[in-house]
């Protein structure tokens, strides 16, 4: 029998072999997300053979600019997960202060807790081994609607967002771009055969297995649990952040 050589390595992002803890943690998380999906989120492996690359679908939360949007992203896990964070890259075009041109998402929860004077992130939002796909995705969904303008990945989007926010929505440039992208994403959803929830009731409902996201034969009706971790800490952080930044620089920029 021919042994496969380097191609058997599951993740190219680190030279070390995947650790048993990474496989353990990822298997558990995947199973859990299949059994109790997170509202507004679908997860699957990009390739059944590789536990270290996931495809996520994010439904835009109702009553936000992103309502009815369908955003796909790849999540890549390092070999030493959960000691180091995964990376998230949007496949769908997303115009957002914290998303780079190439789709890479910049969010503090995915950053190692190194002392990093360049970054305005507060330490309490940083990665630690108890963070997981659920906590990440909750942060991502919350970030969509509440960008962090302190250390933007897309400066133009950030400026535009602030104009929109500070004019209480009168300056519609930001809003229009998002709406256009949401519109475009619906074509993708149709192609994937996915019905995107548009009302809050549908959004928080237990998802049914979709053709594009096969979820084994698990009866999802048995599990519904509003598995919402306490996000207060994070919110507090971003508020402080805004506060510190705005203090002195451009006052009168109250967070809504």
């Amino acid at each position: 029998m021919m042994a496969s050589t380097s191609s058997s390595r599951q993740n190219s992002s680190g030279p070390m072999a995947p650790s048993s803890s990474a496989i353990r943690a990822l298997s558990l998380e995947l199973k859990s997300l299949m059994e109790e999906p997170l509202e507004g989120i679908r997860a699957k492996l990009v390739n059944e053979e590789n536990l270290f690359e996931w495809e996520m679908a994010i439904f835009g939360p109702p009553d936000t600019l992103y309502q009815a949007g369908y955003f796909k992203a790849h999540m890549k896990f390092p070999n030493d997960y959960p000691y180091s964070p995964p990376t998230v890259r949007f496949l769908t075009k997303v115009w957002h202060p914290n998303v780079y041109e190439n789709g890479d998402l910049c969010i503090s929860i995915l950053h190692p807790p190194v002392d990093d004077p360049q970054s305005g992130e507060l330490p309490c939002e940083r990665w630690n081994p108890t963070q997981n796909v659920r906590t990440i995705m909750l942060s991502v969904v919350s970030l969509l609607n509440e960008p962090n303008t302190y250390s933007p990945a897309n400066v133009d989007a950030s400026v535009m967002y602030r104009r929109w926010r500070d004019s209480n929505g009168k300056d519609k440039e930001y809003e229009n771009i998002i709406k256009k992208q949401v519109q475009a994403s619906r074509v993708e959803a149709e192609k994937d055969g996915v019905i995107v929830p548009t009302t809050m009731e549908e959004y928080i409902m237990k998802p049914k297995p979709r053709p594009s996201f096969p979820q084994d034969n698990i009866d999802m009706d048995d599990f519904y649990d509003d598995d919402c971790y306490d996000m207060d800490d994070e919110d507090d952080c971003s508020d402080d952040e805004e506060y510190q930044e705005d203090d002195g620089e451009d006052s009168g920029n109250g967070e809504s």
């Binding site: 943690a25 108890t130 963070q131 971790y229 306490d230």
Partner: peptide, 9 residues
């Protein structure tokens, strides 16, 4: 408030 899912593991 530590994330239950991972903490349990």
């Amino acid at each position: 408030g530590m994330p239950t899912f991972t903490l349990e593991d």
